[in-house]
Write a protein that binds this DNA or RNA. Sequence first.
DNA 1: CAAACATGCTACAATATCTGTAGCAATACA
DNA 2: TGTATTGCTACAGATATTGTAGCATGTTTG
Lengths: 113, 113
Amino acid sequence: MKIPKAGTPVRGSKSGKPIMVLFDLLGRRWALGIIWNLSTGPQTFRTLQSNCDSVSPTVLNTRLKELRECGIVINGESGYELTAEGEDLFTYLQPLGHWSQTWSHAAKLKDDQ
Amino acid sequence: MKIPKAGTPVRGSKSGKPIMVLFDLLGRRWALGIIWNLSTGPQTFRTLQSNCDSVSPTVLNTRLKELRECGIVINGESGYELTAEGEDLFTYLQPLGHWSQTWSHAAKLKDDQ
DNA sequence: CAAACATGCTACAATATCTGTAGCAATACA
DNA sequence: TGTATTGCTACAGATATTGTAGCATGTTTG
């Protein structure tokens, strides 16, 4: 899959608006999960794979390539890890953890009716 | 596609951890873009479609169904719009707009080297 | 009232993407 | 010289997305 790049057309924006480029990247299977998992620290390929619910190595490798290309992940000495930019991105994603909990709680209440 | 539901297995989590359920939902094509576009106010199906870079009606309708089912979008009088929960979710996504700009700027600088 | 539009949406075939399994090459022990 | 572990590729089958066509239901407009 083509690696999205700001300023060039992506799925979602012919003009390559940064937010759409980001959404194209993050909207790919496992991209968000990988970032979330890496936030706890560097991990080897296989550890990461196991933490990501045994995602297939094909996709994991593809996503890691894309995320590296985009400067969000780096392959360091202790394995794959978030770059400074990636860490920064994660701080913006983190609140979603809390939101998702109240959200799922609300859904459950609705279910129980 | 199956609608992800907290507490039940989803792609990314056999246990259905809320954040993974959310990531499953948001990781589908166009989900993030739809939420982003709806944040400016209610829109008809066709307007939304045109704002989403002419996404195919098939996917748009599928995503809208999922987002409605999950309580993020509602089909109101003036068209599709975010629910209170959806608006809340958007406030957490909004900072990504700014992040994506500095990110794409950084990528551009790197390019120019 | 009928013709002309707009809207929400479905059908369907062609593509693209993802999944799951197998397994190879390289390195690190034992 | 085994034996393990790691990072990753190959490949086929399953799923998801795209793109186009077009239908049914209103809503104007002449």
